[in-house]
Design a protein around this nucleic acid. Structure first.
Lengths: 283, 283
DNA sequence: GTCCTCCATACCCGGAGGGTATCGCCTCCG
DNA sequence: CGGAGGCGATACCCTCCGGGTATGGAGGAC
């Protein structure tokens, strides 16, 4: 069987996402006829129909659904290979993906421990609020600090660091601020902001970063569930209250399984050490 | 950045494995000059040197090492996407990779449970002695029964089924057959056969399948460590003795994380059920 | 029926990918 | 020390694939 080129996969993914050859061709920066031919050629080579063409758009066949899912991960893997090879050049570094403030206060200890490793590289930070898992999968980052179950960890290797209880950020003047502790049910009527990348749809206002989020909270226009360590950084006009029945967030160090280099392993070890020392120190 | 095509990755992997442009080109079925150019182009596009050319062969740079490892998994992912899409066509089926006899006796129960699932597909068997993990990674199979820690499970999702103690197969006439139980040290002087695909190198004779293996054992020319369930299938002239300090083998059901289809999930559920019923039934 | 939308077909062109011949360079050996 | 051989790079040519434009045909909306 002839093998599939990444260009063909990118083309198919574009069509499968748009369900429209014209728009997909537009997005890919090519004309529609070559795109149609490329998809037909791909279907013929695989011996499977991928799309049901109707006169108003197209639909995915079961095989198309499979190729969309698997093709995305394959494209991620190819991109990861290229990016990680690039970074392994003379000015090698380790890219850490994390949410600003999403380190449960462990970052200094982790970095200190990592820098003492003989395999340590300079660490670059890739701050991102929403897509840290994707950054690990497609090679934009090498290791990440992310949260379970808030982040999708599939396809990643992980190690748990600490479990963080979740607290709610409220305006000082908010009625609920009078309570010492809350339950999720108490928040059902509140506006909970969302970041644009958030997978789960909601009704809250969209915010771009943590600063905007806290601004909204301080104004009393919204409330926000955050990790308990975030409450250590006070914000003017905002108070924090524990939420008893919120599912706790587990901070994990994550990495792509295909990149089990010494450098990544050293970072994971450093993170593990920092977390366990933190746990024994504060207990 | 221009993206990397799978052809370029295949070319690079071939060169990186052969460390010789001529042999690699031969293996790829092309001439040497186009291959050299393709690699140079790839290096230039990534902005990194991948190989150190010497007059007697080539060596991998650190970036080349990274691209070799990541490129292999990327190629596997692309191949997996193509194969799984092909199989999702009209005559869809679920391919199960397993070692002959490597099911700890669970296979009938697993299949019975799976066939009752509403998502069940016809099951095809892909018997293989050595590379079942690779079959899952590159899409030749959808689910597999493999053993931890004998198999490399990296890049796969797994669920443990049963822990099997290991026993040694001996010829009836073998001196050690007189003992009721053995230790690994007792076997240190014995010939332990290897399958061609076995990663860990050894000195034992090469065997192609389980039949050959048992033949050798019956002749007293070798001994073999096998799972305790294998001892249930008697073989003429062969006896089994427990090995107290052999690390036990855990039978796991494994699948590629990117193919979390309903069919795969149903099979995993069936395997889990069969294993737990087996455990409670025999306890 | 008549548009309109969407995908497929027909045809052409440029350039990337592959082949052959040859060179430059290093190593090894006589 | 010099020639031979092996290895990768370069030069040059050609083919065919990937992409563009123009147009056709089918199906739904009104």
């Amino acid at each position: 069987m002839e093998d599939v080129e990444t260009r063909e996969l990118r083309y198919f993914v574009a069509v499968a996402e748009e369900l429209h050859f014209g728009r997909a061709a537009d997005r890919l920066g090519i004309a529609q006829p070559p795109l149609s031919r490329a998809i037909r050629r791909l279907e013929h080579r695989l011996g499977v129909e991928l799309l049901e063409r109707t006169s108003h758009g197209s639909r995915l066949t079961p095989a198309g659904e499979v190729l969309l899912a698997e093709g995305r991960t394959a494209l991620d893997a190819v991109a990861a290979a290229a990016r990680r090879a690039q970074r392994a050049g003379p000015k090698a570094c380790l890219v850490l993906a994390m949410k600003p403030g999403g380190d449960a206060g462990l970052l200094p200890a982790i970095l200190a421990a990592y820098e003492q490793s003989p395999d340590a590289l300079p660490v670059e930070f890739a701050f991102s609020i929403g897509d840290r898992g994707a950054m690990l999968r497609d090679g934009r980052a090498d290791v990440g600090l992310l949260h379970h179950p808030q982040n999708d960890l599939s396809g990643l290797a992980t190690e748990e660091l600490v479990v963080e209880r979740r607290v709610v950020a409220l305006a000082e003047s908010h009625p609920l601020a009078a309570c010492d502790e809350l339950r999720m049910a108490d928040l059902s009527a509140e506006e909970i902001p969302r970041f644009p990348e958030a997978a789960r749809p909601g009704t809250g206002p969209l915010v771009g970063d943590v600063g905007e989020l806290m601004q909204l909270v301080a104004l009393g226009r919204a409330v926000a569930l955050v990790s308990e360590s975030a409450a250590l950084r006070p914000h003017r006009g905002v108070v924090y209250r524990p939420v008893l029945d919120a599912t706790p967030a587990t901070l994990v160090v994550a990495w792509a399984e295909s990149s089990r280099s010494r450098e990544v392993a050293a970072f994971v070890t450093a993170a593990r050490r920092a977390a366990s020392e933190e746990a024994s120190g504060t207990s």
